Every structure is written in structure tokens, then in C-alpha cells.
Computed example of a mutant assay.
Amino acid sequence: MRDLTPDERQELRRELGAVAADWAQRLNGSDAEAQPRADHEPSYAVRMRTHLARMAAGEQMRGLLADLVSTSAQEAVQYGAGYPELGAAVGASRQAARKRWPNLPISKRRASEWKQPPGGIGWAGDSHLGYPGGA
């Protein structure tokens, strides 16, 4: 995956702004159209309500996007992703991903793919290490 270019970020910002403005108008109702002024300029109160409605829509979008990210993380894990990949996808470390999604069922198969020490038995314990009394 790659990061968005500055132009792509600006385009996404414009698109999200348009979505927020559309939903703000829905949340605000048709107040702006219901109170037309003679000079066709919206009053300060109408402008304030418009911006507050855009804030409310943006906050709702933030929650929905967080849900989308979490659902995508769960689905990525089902297809074999681990914390390193989840962290990379959101621009964070493996540790940050583990803290953000602590209860994801990271596959035991994935853990078995991690590099094992010689003999595959762990660093302590068996007689091949030369310790007395090893089994």
C-alpha cells in the first residue's frame, strides 16, 4: 500500500467535505430555504446552524469510519494479516496495532510461521543445549 499524494489527499478532502455538506443539509432540514432574505444572503444564525450541522455530520462520519476500519482489520486477520500488517495499513507500529485491536484472533498458524530457533524447541530446555538434567 502507498500513502496518498498531496493532490489525492486534497481530492479526498473535497469529496468528504461534499458528503458532509450534503448530510449537514439533511440534518439541518430546509431551514436555509425556509427563511430567504431579501438580499438572498443567509443570516448569521443560518450560517451558524449550517456549520454546526456540518460538524455533526462530520462527527457521525468519524464514528462510521472508525467502525469501517475496525471491521476491515477483523476481516484482514481472517485472511492472514497480523499486527505488523495492520499497523502498516494505518501508519502505526505492530505494538500500536496490538493496543488498538487487542482482542483480534491473530492466527496460531501465523505464529508458527515466525522464525524458530535451531531445533524448533525454544531457547531453553532440552538436553541438546548441554544442560545437565535435560530430558
Rank of each mutant, 00 (worst) to 15 (best):
G87W: 07
L68I: 12
W123E: 11
D7Q: 03
V69P: 09
V19D: 06
G133D: 04
Q74Y: 13
E75D: 14
Y131K: 07
Q10A: 12
G58A: 08
V90Y: 00
R54H: 08
E8Y: 00
P42Y: 12
P42H: 08
R2G: 05
Q116N: 01
A89N: 04
D22L: 06
P117V: 13
A18P: 00
T71P: 00
H51R: 15
H128E: 11
V90I: 04
L104D: 11
A135M: 13
H128D: 08
A45M: 13
L64F: 12
G91H: 00
L4K: 03
T71V: 10
A92E: 04
M48N: 15
A66N: 13
I121V: 09
Y83W: 14
Y83L: 14
L52W: 10
Q74A: 15
E11Y: 01
P84C: 00
E41Q: 12
G29T: 08
A32P: 02
P117H: 10
L27K: 10
V77E: 13
L68K: 12
G133Y: 02
P36L: 02
G29K: 13
Q78P: 00
M55V: 10
G63F: 11
Y44D: 15
A18M: 02
Q10R: 14
G120Y: 04
P118Y: 05
H51K: 08
Q35K: 08
Q35S: 09
L104H: 08
L4C: 02
Q78E: 14
L129H: 14
T5M: 06
I106L: 07
G122Y: 03
P6G: 09
A81Y: 10
H40G: 03
A124S: 12
K108P: 00
D22S: 09
M48V: 14
P36T: 07
V77F: 09
D126I: 02
A92C: 02
D67H: 14
E59L: 13
D22P: 00
L65H: 00
E75P: 01
Y79D: 12
E113V: 04
K99Y: 03
Y44F: 13
A66G: 06
A24Y: 03
S72M: 10
L12Q: 11
A135C: 11
A57C: 00
D126L: 07
R9V: 01
W114S: 11
W123S: 11
S107R: 03
R109V: 01
V69G: 08
D67M: 11
P102H: 12
L27I: 13
D22Y: 09
L68N: 05
E113D: 07
M55S: 06
G63Q: 05
A88C: 04
G17F: 06
Y44S: 14
P132D: 04
G133T: 01
R26M: 07
A76R: 05
D3Y: 08
E75A: 14
Q74S: 14
M1K: 07
E59A: 10
G125D: 05
G87R: 09
R94N: 08
S112F: 11
E85Q: 15
A56N: 04
L27G: 15
L16E: 09
R49F: 07
R26E: 12
N103Y: 05
L104M: 06
R94D: 05
Q78V: 05
Y83N: 12
G63R: 13
R54V: 08
G91F: 01
Y131M: 05
R37F: 02
A97I: 01
I106G: 03
P36H: 04
L65W: 03
S30Q: 13
R37N: 12
Q95H: 07
P117D: 11
N103L: 09
A45H: 14
A53C: 10
L86T: 03
A32L: 04
